[in-house]
Amino acid sequence: MLARRIIPCLDVKDGRVVKGINFVGLRDAGDPVECAARYSEGGADEICFLDITASHDERRTLFELVERTARAIAVPLTVGGGVRERRDVHDLLHAGADKVSTNSGAVANPSFVAEASRAYGSQAIVVAIDAKRVSAPGEPTRFSVFTHGGRRDTGLDAIEWAKRVVDLGAGEILLTSMDRDGTRDGYDIELTRAVVDAVSVPVIASGGVGNEAHIRDGFLLAGADAALAASIFHDGQHTVAEVKHYLLAAGVRVRPPEESDGPGPEGAAS
């Protein structure tokens, strides 16, 4: 049967992997191609790049980077950040991305999701949703969709928005909890479960992973199809192989790391 997927995520700025909490105090965490190759060797099921480059002029750097990464790895590559029109999807797919993720672009123009999925297939179109709890204590739980790196509240209900983009043709939802992102407190299980139950496409849980047990909970409690994590891998706290061995022991169906997929350089710090 189908395995749950582990997806290391690389935040890319001006062609480099950066890390920082809530986009503050960004630090250089290395060359994206090298990081992607290392994670894929370690047993990552897929790699995700989120481009946080501010300037449009520097987008060329991203395309060149996607090309080099796609040459280096033999697992699927998802790329997001600044994707707003069909041309962006075309350029990224032609640079070697397997899937393209859009967030603000979908909110600004929902028909773009339909147009892109018709042109390139639903399987290539991921809609990223940044959701934040907006209900007061005691009120029924409500999550709102935020854009622009979490700065702008769209007023859209996250669950309804997820259903809508799937109806429009999104092939997958990348769901980030703004409340949990950077906290290392674990995924927002309630949010993730609500979206998993509401839509008919795979849901990637994101935001808040601090240890292996959080990933297990994302799968077993929230029912996520895939788990996205960044800092636990970048910090050398865990290798992908270690996480997978932990999940296998916990009864989660994942693709086991190959013998030759040992810890490698990413295990150096652990």
Binding site: M1, L2, A3, D45, V75, S122, G171, S200, P202, A226
Partner: peptide
């Protein structure tokens, strides 16, 4: 759990064919 279509991700194959590995994992 309800299974989603497309079938997307890594799955194992059952095979004895020499081109493949028994119980090998491949991306669909």
């Amino acid at each position: 759990e309800r299974l989603k279509v497309p079938h997307m991700g890594w799955n194992q194959v059952q095979t004895t064919h020499p081109m493949l590995e028994p119980d090998g994992w491949y991306y669909f």
